[in-house]
């Protein structure tokens, strides 16, 4: 039997549907709970609606990129397994590395369906699953206590507490800002395009920010990030 028909079987799609249903129920549950807590706390419902709307708009472009990652992985693992792995805990970067490492450990020359056997496929699925569990397990046992400590620190010295959280944002962002340097060293063409995309998105964000803050173009508020990203990516589309 061709392994592709197993990896893309009705049974595997049914498992994928169960996972998608779980994520849907989970997200609605957390949304309703946060909404009710917001109402009790006196947060303006219009503000909460605006947050939801801007998050939906923001998510569209990165989600299409995730879909593209799914298509990339489908050549090696079929459609349902990447669908499930990208819906629960996973991310494109991690899943590809984990699947590729497990495939090589099993002796496959490449992560391709034509090389795959059910035993290797099961092994890859197990490796991808186990290695992603640290974050959620940390959350179950330690998140409550850890966030309590961070909150205590913020209450003791509010300015310093805010600086620590701002530093966490900044550290993450600066790491990603440096990534095109590595790409330039590996593939100068792709690296300089990434750098140009980054600079364009930053420049467009600066213009939008100016229009919102100084020119009172409030309609742009909420669309600034998606607009900056799309224009930055369009530059790559034209040059690449």
């Amino acid at each position: 039997m061709d392994f592709s028909s197993i990896a893309n079987s009705t049974f595997m799609y049914l498992l994928g549907a169960v996972v998608a249903l779980f994520i849907t129920i989970l997200s609605i549950f957390f949304m309703l709970r946060a909404w009710r807590a917001g109402v009790r706390k006196g947060i303006d419902p219009a503000l909460m609606k605006r947050v939801i709307r801007s998050s939906v708009v923001f998510t569209i472009v990165p989600s299409v990129a995730i879909l593209l990652g799914l298509i990339t992985m489908a050549g090696g693992l079929g459609v349902p397994l990447p669908w499930m792995r990208l819906s629960v805990i996973g991310s494109v970067q991690y899943e590809l590395i984990a699947a590729d490492s497990a495939a090589r450990a099993a002796g496959l020359p490449e992560l391709l369906l034509r090389h795959m056997t059910p035993e290797v496929f099961a092994s890859i699925a197990i490796v991808m699953t186990v290695c992603i569990l640290a974050g959620p397990i940390f959350n179950i046992f330690f998140l409550k206590g850890y966030l309590g400590r961070v909150q205590n620190m913020q209450q003791k010295d509010n300015t310093w507490g805010k600086l620590v959280v701002a530093s966490m944002f900044m550290g993450m962002i600066c790491t990603f800002l440096g990534n095109p340097i590595i790409t330039i060293r590996q593939d100068p063409g792709a690296g300089w395009i990434a750098m140009l995309v980054m600079a364009t998105a930053a420049a467009v964000y600066a213009v939008c920010d100016y229009l919102v803050q100084k020119r009172k173009q409030k309609w742009l508020d909420g669309f600034t990030l998606p607009i900056s990203m799309i224009i930055g990516m369009t530059v790559a589309g034209f040059i690449g």
């Binding site: 593209l68 600066c174 800002l177 990434a194 995309v197 980054m198 998105a201 990203m229 790559a236």
Partner: peptide, 16 residues
């Protein structure tokens, strides 16, 4: 190429 550059676009804007 546009979708290959989602992350640079995202962090360029967030960086600013």
């Amino acid at each position: 190429p546009a979708f290959a550059n989602v992350i640079p676009a995202l962090f360029g804007a967030l960086g600013y």
